[in-house]
Design a protein around this nucleic acid. Sequence first.
DNA 1: TTTCTTGTTGAACAGTTGTACAGCAAGAGA
DNA 2: TCTCTTGCTGTACAACTGTTCAACAAGAAA
Lengths: 209, 209
Amino acid sequence: MEKEKTQEKRQPKYSRKSPSERREILVQAALNCIVRDGPHKLSIRQIAQEAGVSVGLINHHYTSKEELVADAYRHIAASLMDDFGQRIKMEGGTAQEQLLRFIQLSFSPVNLDPKLFRAWLAFWTMMQHSEEVSAVHAEQYDSYRSRLEHLFQEIIEAGTPLRMSPRLAALGLSGLLDGLWLEWSLDPTNFTEEEGIEICRNWLEMIKK
Amino acid sequence: MEKEKTQEKRQPKYSRKSPSERREILVQAALNCIVRDGPHKLSIRQIAQEAGVSVGLINHHYTSKEELVADAYRHIAASLMDDFGQRIKMEGGTAQEQLLRFIQLSFSPVNLDPKLFRAWLAFWTMMQHSEEVSAVHAEQYDSYRSRLEHLFQEIIEAGTPLRMSPRLAALGLSGLLDGLWLEWSLDPTNFTEEEGIEICRNWLEMIKK
DNA sequence: TTTCTTGTTGAACAGTTGTACAGCAAGAGA
DNA sequence: TCTCTTGCTGTACAACTGTTCAACAAGAAA
């Protein structure tokens, strides 16, 4: 009896974290859940279990489930873009080479992952009825596309005229990348990664005047 | 009292339909619900209310909600493709002209509709955990892409060589169309219909050798 | 008119959901 | 050691989910 009480005292049932630490843990747990089970199984209780905390904690740190998901969206989208950005800039090269590397990365297992698609499905669904999530999307997508646009601008400035404006070239490539990513995610047997890269590589070649 | 009873007799509470008629009504109601409220509000009770029937009826005609949704998916996807097909063939013309018309139709209000996107979001979500819905997708997407592929094949046979195989050309165009449709649906302020058409029209021009 | 088939009802069931909140307890500061 | 702040727990709640099924009744057939 005495012994048990002592053990309990020495092994706290839980450890207190600072709000930012706890939010980080909750965001990671939410991402794990979305990625594992998809949007329709995403519940406060699932997330709480994944994070190893009680149900109540989530509404202590976030006013609603949507707020947490929006935070998770921002987190994964930004870290993916950062990852892409770093890998591309690390190896340097011309704008043309960087775009090619961007395409190759888009068709690498990091990005071509059914789990990742499930996460985006959840975000798109929540965008339909959450201003918060919509704002995060607009913010992330803008940065994504302006990055592409800037690279096409560089190509033109380097002396290679294009058949269309950098804006349309970027819109086209992002559409192509997203569309092929979508179709591959819905059914990976549709085409291979190599075919995907081949199609996008052609876009890069063909838009040169 | 006597009068009331007579009225009740003459105005039945409901009318009995043949299974096929009722299924048609249920499918339409399900589509209305998906399109109006999106995937996360799609429930048996909502569909039943929309169809003006009781909750129990749905499980009388379908063994599960998923079966009904799969039926609804097949219905809307097939009718959209039929609509496209008819409009394209009606005006005839070369394969090149038909493809251009396909692109224009893709960026017309019929297809560029946030409501339609909500429906597809629901289907994609259900594909993640329903063999039934997945099968319908595979079936519909195959017919969609093979239609495009066939038109590119015609172009080649008409004497215009392409920079890539009909398969890759079709994959590319469908990726482009789907990707731009996706991005427009997520945020219609991204680009205009004209810009979308312009991008796809360029694909048609550029792939010629 | 009566019978009979079967499409239809609506309550009941056993779950699930997000959120609120009274109270517990971790662990820093005194 | 004790106090006190506040991160955290877990129950309670009201509303919802898909599915089942005994009972009802529409309307064709006899």
